[in-house]
Design a protein around this nucleic acid. Sequence first.
DNA 1: CAATTGTATTCCCATACTGGAATATGTCAA
DNA 2: TTGACATATTCCAGTATGGGAATACAATTG
Lengths: 113, 113
Amino acid sequence: MPRSPTTSDVFNAIAEPRRRQLIELLAAGGALAVGALVASMDLPQPVVSKHLGVLRKVGIVSVHKDGKQRIYSLEADRLKVVHDWVKNFEQLWSHHLDRIKLRAERKARGEQA
Amino acid sequence: MPRSPTTSDVFNAIAEPRRRQLIELLAAGGALAVGALVASMDLPQPVVSKHLGVLRKVGIVSVHKDGKQRIYSLEADRLKVVHDWVKNFEQLWSHHLDRIKLRAERKARGEQA
DNA sequence: CAATTGTATTCCCATACTGGAATATGTCAA
DNA sequence: TTGACATATTCCAGTATGGGAATACAATTG
């Protein structure tokens, strides 16, 4: 079985640097038209539109028409799942690191408390 | 110009569900041998080894030998970059959401404060 | 309606990705 | 050394991906 189409998954959507850049632009600039995004990205318009399409499909951005322009907005709450996931490991790089690591290794060796 | 090899990038590494699962297992279980990971994942050993290889290359996990076993440990701090990135948008889904959204949209319309 | 502007879609190419199977490598034990 | 066990690597197939170019589509203006 070959690779499964992991697109339409938030983690995959943000794996692309350009798409992260788009997210950053929308986070900083609020709602923006495609043209504005194209101007900020060093990429041809069709490519930007395609990346926006991915983000749209995943729900990370939403669009509404404004004349012939399409205004994109960030739906930031869709990123929450990523935040929540990494947050689970936050303690592992905190200042408690040493103690936690030690405990984990002891456990791995099968030692009793 | 085709796609650039985005592998060896943390965001890409965690885009794979199986790899996230491996990370979770290591976070929960501390240091674990490949065999233990294979037992917990419904995947053949070579596939697991390959995923571990990716995580290793990115630095998300480290290995040390123990006899014929390879013990993998999570290098959680490598995930910090992801945490930091999403954290930038945390406020956008907080309870201030409405006010922030409003402000952003006003700004987009070019209105003055 | 025609022309123009803004954006999305389609087709193509080169490459990358994952999983499967087989095999190689490494390590210990007898 | 031989054999068994643990893990890594290689080769293959099918699919997905991103960017380029051309084109289609939509909306506004004249």
